[in-house]
Amino acid sequence: MLLELKDLIVSYGPVQVLRNISMQVRKAQVVTIIGANGAGKSTTLRSISGLVNLKSGSIHFDGQRINDLPANKIVSMGISHVPEGRRIFPDMTVEENLRTGAFLRKDKTEVEKNLKDIFNQFPILRNRRSKNAKTLSGGEQQMLAIGRALMAKPKMLLMDEPSMGLAPVIVDEIRKIIEQIRENGVTILLVEQNAELALNLANYAYVLENGQIVLEGPAEELHDNEQVKAAYLGI
């Protein structure tokens, strides 16, 4: 098991956002969390990255307990987070954004090679490499955010709503990108409101409602589940 969440409880003030969440992610799999707005999907990812503190519970990555580590240490263990809303650095160039993703890496030649690979994968970023990131379109910014996370050479990628606010054509492109990352052997934990996209990409899925897991199973099974169909797939 690469990632294991056990009985997570997180609260913002008096409000419990996560109530006893337990989850497992196997190596080289895509696992998705679907659910409505405010169900606690982002909070789950943020607690893995060390951006929010747990009230109780534990998180293990690669056999090591990580839930008391600061965010920068968690990155160094091999977890990269593509945050909701992309959160690129607007006044830094595309290239600077990407290189910032490799902040902790010491293997300079490998970093250069990685950068080249990312430019090959996203040619549009190469064309804009010395432009400020805020001048990019939404889809390009999403690619930049994904590229930046990949520059850390992560074992695992946490992706928060990569399709949010993007045109269907671009969403399709993002789907292909995620497939490619999966083929490269990177484990992915994907949070999505677009359940159709998420269930098509994933091996395993969790359905979150009001901070609790109400349903889980292999993605194809959930895709055919009547409850899921009615609530999230709009069929």
Partner: peptide, 20 residues
């Protein structure tokens, strides 16, 4: 220097790149 600019622009996103 980049770390500094990144933190000034978005501290949380900077943390996610491993910047303290």
């Amino acid at each position: 220097g980049w770390a500094l600019r990144a933190s000034a622009q978005d501290p949380e996103a900077a943390m996610l790149q491993g910047i303290s």
